[in-house]
């Protein structure tokens, strides 16, 4: 990994404060402009398609799918998460720019769901990433997802969706958990 040092920034993100002059209006705008990174991690991502297209039309809430984590605000963990996917999810999450939010769909991210005894699917997502909103069900219907997003908007609007802050504050602990199951950590220490 020594060679990669010059190619990746090996520096911890700084802790951020939450507030400022425009706090109210910022939160209001953030709540109404949620850009979702289009990354289907599990079976639940099939529910996202109706959510975002004509039938349920999440765009009326100001939501959009974007293709790159750099521009996204929301990361959706749609269902079970395998170890292999988790590595990518961590990298994607860390490449998003703050403030950023995580929404977990279905039972699997909560406690493993029907894959509780799988050799490959993690049991609890919040050990590895700060989750702002859980939406239960296996799978949750688009209505439920929309309700979840509504909840996320409320949280953001009231300034309580601060998972991104928690993640930076407790980065070492999260990293410890992550490294526990990702034995061979082939990523840079900090993904930017």
């Amino acid at each position: 990994m020594g060679k990669d040092k010059k190619y990746f920034l090996d520096e911890k993100p700084e802790k951020l404060t939450y507030g400022g002059v425009f706090r109210r209006i910022n939160d209001w705008a953030r709540a109404r402009s949620l850009w979702v990174v289009a990354y289907g991690t599990g079976c639940g991502s099939i529910e996202l398609r109706p959510t975002f297209t004509s039938r349920f039309d999440a765009e009326r809430l100001g939501m959009r799918m974007v293709a790159t984590p750099r521009q996204a605000d929301v990361l959706i963990i749609s269902g079970y998460l395998t170890v292999k996917t988790l590595k990518r999810v961590i990298r994607v999450y860390e490449q998003m720019q703050s403030p950023k939010y995580v929404v977990a769909l279905g039972a699997c991210p909560i406690n493993g769901g029907m894959y509780y005894d799988s050799y490959n699917a993690i049991n609890r997502l919040d050990l590895y990433l700060p989750v702002d909103v859980w939406i239960t069900g296996c799978m949750p219907r688009p209505e439920a997802i929309l309700a979840g997003f509504k909840r996320l908007q409320e949280l953001i609007d009231s300034g309580r969706a601060d998972g991104w802050k928690k993640y930076i504050d407790n980065l070492d602990r999260y990293r410890e958990n992550q490294k526990k199951i990702i034995k061979n950590w082939k990523m840079p220490n900090y993904n930017w």
């Binding site: 170890v83 509780y116 799988s118 050799y119 699917a121 049991n123």
Partner: peptide, 29 residues
């Protein structure tokens, strides 16, 4: 599929997948 797998192959019937899950992914409930 398996990255960095160190145990016996998981589809062999003598592999205890539940115990593995518990040890690796921690408590569930």
């Amino acid at each position: 599929i398996l990255e960095d797998w160190e145990e016996i192959p998981p589809m062999r019937r003598d592999f205890n997948t539940l115990r593995y899950s518990m040890e690796k992914f921690g408590e569930r409930e």
